[in-house]
Design a binder for these strands. Structure first.
Length: 273
DNA sequence: GCATTACCCTGAAAGC
DNA sequence: TGCTTTCAGGGTAATG
């Protein structure tokens, strides 16, 4: 389940390995992902140069020359692998970008919740998926004051707010649970009931949790690994996520689980109010 | 207009 | 042992 730290790990790895390479051919499985991959996708990508790789929220964006942007979202189970050109193409491989140095970039996604799209626009900001995103938690616009302003006028539960990519870009279930634990806020709290001081604390917690996860190359349970095949290491440092019934490392109380909007939330009822 | 729910999908785990 | 059912979750369209 790639969230921002996992996507950032992938982007950093791919920057080292595929930027400056030309795409010579593209093979597609033909199966639809979240949306059907446009029939012209392969033809539009072929012969373009990979100029740079960007991340916006959980989106990976290949900046191409002649100017275009290839947008990749990994959904729940998507993975990118940079492999030798002779590597086999396993089941659930939906796109293969063959590069000029005889290597290949494989997109695999067994649940097909991901997205592959090409936009011929002059700027990243004109990509519709990117334009709709809220501020990046590691960017300048994300701070306690702005977060507090957003929370004040919202009646949703804080968990749903933080998962909404239009409000904050890049957070998923794992890091929302972890950040709320560090900020001592229960996931069911209504946004407008989070005071300024708590919002400031939450903004700081979100940034710290994400930075720490990036240092550990993300969290791996079953789905995530980097393009080089290495899993992340952050799962060892989680305080609440998937720890239902275990002891809280802060107060020795018991971690509980509840379901919000069909997603599991993990929290410590003693530490979080 | 905002909040909530259903749906897409498949592998793994649980239940029978 | 083998089959069936349930669950997980990101994003979005549909519904309330």
């Amino acid at each position: 389940m790639p969230e921002m730290p996992e996507v950032e790990t992938i982007v950093r790895s791919l920057r080292r390995s595929i930027v400056g390479r030309q795409i010579v051919a593209v093979d597609l499985s033909g199966l639809p992902l979240r949306r059907p991959v446009p029939p012209a996708f392969a033809q539009q990508l072929a012969s373009r140069l990979i100029r740079a790789i960007h991340r916006r929220g959980k989106y990976i964006i290949l900046e191409l020359e002649p100017k275009a942007f290839c947008v990749v979202h990994l959904g729940m189970s998507g993975r990118l692998f940079h492999l030798p050109g002779t590597a086999p193409r396993p089941e659930h491989t939906h796109a293969v970008l063959r590069l000029e140095d005889a290597s290949q970039l494989q997109y695999r996604d067994h649940r097909r919740f991901g997205l592959l799209e090409l936009y011929e626009v002059p700027r990243i900001g004109l990509i519709p998926e990117v334009a709709a995103l809220g501020p990046d938690p590691l960017g300048r616009k994300f701070n306690g004051r702005n977060l507090s302003r957003g929370l004040r006028e919202c009646r949703q539960e804080i968990k749903a707010f933080l998962l909404d990519q239009h409000k904050v870009a890049g957070l998923g279930n794992i890091y929302v649970c972890e950040a709320l634990f560090h900020a001592a806020i229960r996931p069911t709290r209504r946004c407008f009931k989070v005071c300024d001081e708590e919002a400031r604390r939450l903004a700081g917690s979100i940034r710290r949790v994400l930075r720490r996860a990036i240092r550990h190359r993300g969290t791996s349970f079953s789905d995530f690994m980097g393009p080089d095949g290495k899993p992340g290491d952050h799962q060892r440092f989680l305080r609440v996520f998937q720890r239902e019934g275990e002891k809280c490392r802060r107060c020795r109380g018991t971690i509980e689980r509840l379901v919000q909007g069909g997603r599991s939330s993990f929290y410590c009822p003693r530490c979080q109010s």
